[in-house]
């Protein structure tokens, strides 16, 4: 009896433990319900330690980094003072300061200029899941943070708030597999759905193959979803090509993640903004598009335009001014192209 128990004890324990976890998974997936107790426990245990480590790092390595940066700025200052006049020196110094400003400083500059009601948050950890792009923020429900709030940087959208705990919250980045948001293109005002792919670039779905979306074109939030107010920068189109089915394949580089993330801004109360006027630069894909027969910036000819051009040629052949007098005979065809000129020196 004892031998039987010891023989099957291991495999029985494995079956029980695995079965319990499969049931837990099924409960969450089927009922679309979370197990907040486990997450709350883990988050509560983790957040104080993470905050402590973060503070320790900022007060040690951070101080050294700042000191090194300050020393470098002073050297630059001395060198420039000998080379440039006072005005140029001041200008250069400000440019250097701006270039070397940390993300937190950039956020501090951006905060008062934005019409949104924003809350600055610091990143204190990352998710453990491969392929997922989830970070942990040091702001939570106590600070007024709620689920699905938009998270941005001065350069563009960074993601959306996931689970919220009293002292922290999850940030689901735009590159995460579970991220989606409505977007609109800058020039052609084509709307689509931005979806994370688990890597650096994100995909825009549901843009029809017939729609024109150019490489280099900026995307903005469309405001269709309730999370992101309209008009926030999303990123630049890097690839735009015909898809296999009805929709194009458009890949975008998220602008909000371009400079890395140390700190972010949570949009507590979003204000829709007007989209900027389309830029006049000719995008690359317009140059290479096979159907782009019209002048840059002009609308492409459709069938009705071609018919209109045909009738204009017929009217010109009949010496008829369109819209005046009786209708001409439209059964006439347009005059044939003139024969090529004979070569020079040829006899008639």
């Amino acid at each position: 009896m004892e031998n039987d128990i010891s023989r099957y004890r291991n495999i029985a324990a494995l079956v029980v433990v695995l079965g319990a976890q499969f049931l837990l998974l099924a409960y969450q997936v089927k009922g679309r319900q979370d197990v907040p107790v486990v997450r709350l426990w883990a988050s509560s245990a983790f957040a104080p330690v993470a905050r402590g480590v973060s503070a320790l790092r900022e007060n040690t390595i951070g101080v050294v980094e700042h000191y090194a940066g300050l020393a470098s700025a002073q050297n630059d200052n001395v060198r420039l003072r000998s080379e440039l006049d006072r005005l140029k020196l001041e200008n250069q110094f400000l440019k250097n300061e701006l270039r070397t400003a940390s993300n937190a400083q950039a956020l501090a500059m951006f905060l008062p200029t934005s019409p949104q009601r924003l809350l600055a948050a610091r990143i204190i950890g990352a998710s453990t899941t491969p392929g997922s792009r989830v970070l942990f923020l040091d702001r939570g429900a106590r600070d007024g943070v709620r689920e699905r709030m938009a998270v941005i940087t001065p350069d563009g959208i960074a993601g959306r708030i996931g689970a919220v705990r009293p002292g922290g919250a999850q940030l689901i980045l735009v590159t995460d597999l579970n991220f989606a948001a409505g977007v609109i293109t800058e020039r052609s005002r084509v709307q689509g759905v931005l979806k994370g792919q688990g890597h650096a670039s994100v995909l825009v779905e549901y843009v029809q193959n017939e729609d024109k979306v150019a490489v280099g074109e900026m995307l903005f939030t469309s405001g269709d979803d309730v999370d992101f107010p309209k008009g926030l920068p999303v990123g630049e189109v890097k690839i735009s090509r015909r898809g296999r089915g009805l929709f194009k394949e458009i890949f975008v580089e998220p602008a909000g993640l371009a400079r890395g993330l140390d700190s972010v801004l949570i949009v507590l109360q979003g204000v829709p903004q007007e989209l900027p006027a389309p830029s006049t630069a000719t995008p690359e894909s317009v140059k290479e598009a096979p159907l782009a027969v019209a002048a840059p910036g002009a609308p492409l000819p459709i069938d009705a335009d071609k018919i209109l051009q045909k009738y204009e040629r017929i009217s010109e052949a009949n010496r008829h001014r369109m819209g005046a007098g009786p209708a001409p005979s439209f059964t006439l065809t347009a005059p044939a192209a003139p024969p090529p000129a004979p070569p020079a020196g040829a006899k008639p």
Partner: peptide, 25 residues
Amino acid sequence: GCAIGLAQDAFSHNPIGLFGIAKTL
């Protein structure tokens, strides 16, 4: 494996149990 995996799951936004099952095995 089960305990460590479940704790690791708690820090992901996926349903709890994926790391748990993998680490249990």
